[in-house]
Design a protein around this nucleic acid. Structure first.
Lengths: 200, 200
DNA sequence: ATTATTATTGAATGAATGTTCAATAAAATA
DNA sequence: TATTTTATTGAACATTCATTCAATAATAAT
């Protein structure tokens, strides 16, 4: 009994995400959003409530995409290989000289403060989802015998998350690509080696 | 032959830094700056050129303070102890539940993009200064025999820098204090242990 | 075809943004 | 003391900000 939206939501979110990712939440204005998406203010406010609403929808959109990204690696390999492949895929993305936007979630986490409560909690949720996936993967590796029995998978997942945050920041700071690669590789090896089981 | 400034520059910078640290570069307006410092717009623009100039002066101010912070640890201990003490001082600051502002430099690094060129390069300079200090400290430790001869101190300094970025981000993301402490401790041990020499 | 409901339009809103400026005040030199 | 130089004042600047709204268009159900 009503007119349906004329636009493709995920197409709009893709464009909005690119905009926010490049300029940040505060750095991208509603006019920029209008230009980037082709939607007029009225439509934007009718669909997302306000600018913060658009941003949170973008965070969700990005997070879902990231989830798909992780699942993509889960096909054929052992848990540890899946984990390693995902980790180094992020490393490569962070080391890419032509794209130094870092991680949309990490950027948002540092840009937004106590005043943007809804954003903060959304970011927190998405980041912890990623960390939980890492832990699940480590746990699976432990079950399968790729990691030693006494591996503290929760703590290890936190360490890996921290390491990833680290080179996400380095990526933004425009560090040398090889430096990022080297430091990420070394850190990964240092963190994982103590728990890895030698195949018999 | 002229009237001297009426304000104490470092007092102003202290207040401005606190403001920017809490709200970010874009999140703090010039009016906020006026309120926080007590200076009127004209004085601010006469002294710092523009808002970006104030921010860059704050980055410098913070960086110098950080340098003093590092030197404070250099008094009585061995290079490795100095390094460890500094590292865990930052950990404790990051884990402090009442102050989750993270690192002013890291925050600025993620908030500011390609449009704020001057800020980006200032941040880069300050961060690399810290990393260089870490490397020097590691190098001293190697010379003294606290670390093995074949320690790649440059790469290790990069790894430690990344680790610190990591828990700076976690601090902002409002993670549990003990989680931050645990992950930082574990990461530090993993990174350092392979190179540490056992005393004979 | 009529009606109810929602989407889109695009101008308008008031508040806030960073910055400028002429006037004034204060200090240091001559 | 007179002069020069710089600092401070506080209002005013144009611009941009996020948001609203009455008018219009489009759809689905009656």
């Amino acid at each position: 009994m009503a007119r349906p939206p004329q636009f493709d939501r995920s197409e709009i979110l893709e464009k909005a995400t690119q905009l926010f990712w490049e300029h940040g939440y505060r750095g991208a204005s509603v006019s920029d959003l209008v230009k980037a998406t082709g939607l007029l203010p009225g439509s934007i406010y009718a669909s997302f409530g306000n600018k913060e609403g658009v941003f949170i929808a973008c965070l969700e959109y990005y997070s879902v995409k990231l989830e798909g990204n992780r699942e993509q690696f889960e096909r054929e390999s052992s848990p540890l290989t899946v984990l390693r492949n995902f980790f180094f895929a992020v490393v490569e993305q962070s080391a890419d000289g032509d794209d130094r936007r870092g991680c949309f979630l990490v950027n948002a986490s540092l840009e937004c403060g106590e005043s943007e409560t809804a954003i903060k909690s959304k970011v927190r949720g998405c980041l912890s989802q990623n960390e939980t996936w890492l832990r699940d993967q480590l746990e699976a590796a432990r079950q399968v015998g790729e990691l030693s029995e006494d591996t503290d998978t929760t703590k290890l997942a936190a360490c890996l998350t921290g390491a990833m945050f680290g080179f996400r920041v380095m990526s933004r700071a425009q560090e040398d690509s090889n430096k990022i690669r080297d430091m990420a590789t070394a850190t990964f090896e240092c963190l994982m080696t103590p728990w890895q089981q030698v195949a018999i």
